[in-house]
């Protein structure tokens, strides 16, 4: 029974258990938050720790030499770094071209709202397909479809370095093609936000001056949203640099760099995925070093992308 109280109230101050539970739960939440920060520190520390012997052994030469020879204990990732950047640039360029166009179509009243929602859903589902399934699809659909075109291009323009080889199987072009599909949802989603944030009155002003729809888009809307779109492309680049499975399945495993779109290639991530299963302790150390390099590159790219996008938000807030 509640004890009689001269004031007649049933209100009681919080019990000791209430207070204890409150303190503990808040402590637990703060600890979880702190652990999330520590996790990233831990990731960097673990990978760096594992890579340390290799860093000591191979030093900067690791970044500037081209040999991957586990039996001779010689390791260099220059072709991988070059290949990572080359394939990412190609994939992101293609993906951005399509991704930004789709974002324009989805935001500038081209489609009736219902169709717009459907198209948006389809693009989002593109990002739900696992990388390994894109790889499988690439092997059995993209490579056979591209091969005759690629070989025709080689026969006709073979003098140009980018068409310098035949596409016999895995190669840079199918890899970049699939990479483009995989980064498209990222580019579209972030660009769409940037385009949608452009004030309607700016567009109206352009229309009021007699601009056609595309003149308004190209001269007013795109420049206003350019920073957000640029941020989207940078973040997509960060994703492309770290993409592993689809590239491991479509790029081949060549350990050398070629400018030809049809030659097999290599990246840091695919090197790790391809070499790991058969690697010994020494090679694992070198692969950890490669991982550390990849970590540095992605952290750099993602920080730049996040900063660009954060600046756009601030600019928009300042305008309000």
């Amino acid at each position: 029974m509640t004890r009689p109280d001269p004031t007649g109230t049933l209100a009681r101050p919080p019990t000791r258990f209430d207070k204890w539970a409150d303190r503990s739960f808040r402590g637990l939440a703060a600890t979880s938050a702190a652990l999330a920060v520590l996790l990233v520190v831990g990731i960097v520390a673990q990978i760096a720790g594992q890579a340390e012997p290799a860093v000591r052994e191979y030093g900067v030469d690791f970044l500037t030499t081209s040999k991957w020879d586990p039996s001779g204990k010689k390791f260099g990732v220059l072709p991988q770094i070059a290949g990572t950047l080359y394939s990412s640039v190609l994939g992101v360029a293609l993906g951005s071209l399509f991704g930004v166009t789709v974002a324009i179509v989805l935001t500038q009243d081209f489609l009736p709202p219902r169709l717009e929602a459907v198209a948006k859903g389809v693009v989002e589902l593109l990002s739900a397909v696992p990388s390994v399934v894109y790889g499988l699809w690439g092997i059995f659909v993209v490579i056979p479809a591209l091969r005759p075109l690629a070989n025709a291009a080689h026969e006709t323009f073979g003098a140009l370095p980018i068409f310098g080889t035949r596409l016999s199987g895995p190669g840079l072009l199918p890899a970049a093609f699939v990479l483009a599909i995989m980064v498209l949802p990222t580019v579209t989603a972030i660009s769409r936000d940037a385009l949608a944030a452009v004030p309607g009155k700016l567009r109206e002003a352009a229309f009021g001056l007699g601009a056609t729809r595309w003149e308004a888009i190209v001269k007013v809307v795109l420049p206003t949203a350019s920073r957000g779109i640029f941020g989207a492309i940078v973040l997509a680049f960060g994703r492309a640099v770290g993409e592993t499975m689809a590239l491991a399945m479509l790029l081949g495993n060549s350990n050398s760099f070629s400018w030809s779109l049809f030659a097999p290639g290599t990246t840091l991530a695919t090197l790790m995925a391809n070499q790991w299963p058969e690697s010994g302790a020494v090679e694992k150390g070198a692969l950890m070093y490669a991982g550390l390099v990849l970590l540095g590159i992605t952290l750099l790219i993602n920080s730049v992308g996040t900063l660009i996008l954060r600046r756009t938000v601030r600019v928009e807030e300042a305008h309000q």
């Binding site: 673990q46 960060g238 770290g242 993409e243 952290l299 790219i301």
Partner: peptide
């Protein structure tokens, strides 16, 4: 934490593998 979460969402999955291996 917010910064770290953004960093983590851009972490290549292959590196999550290296971390869990270590």
């Amino acid at each position: 934490v917010r910064f770290v979460a953004k960093v983590l969402s851009g972490l290549p999955s292959v590196l999550a593998g290296l971390f869990a291996y270590a």
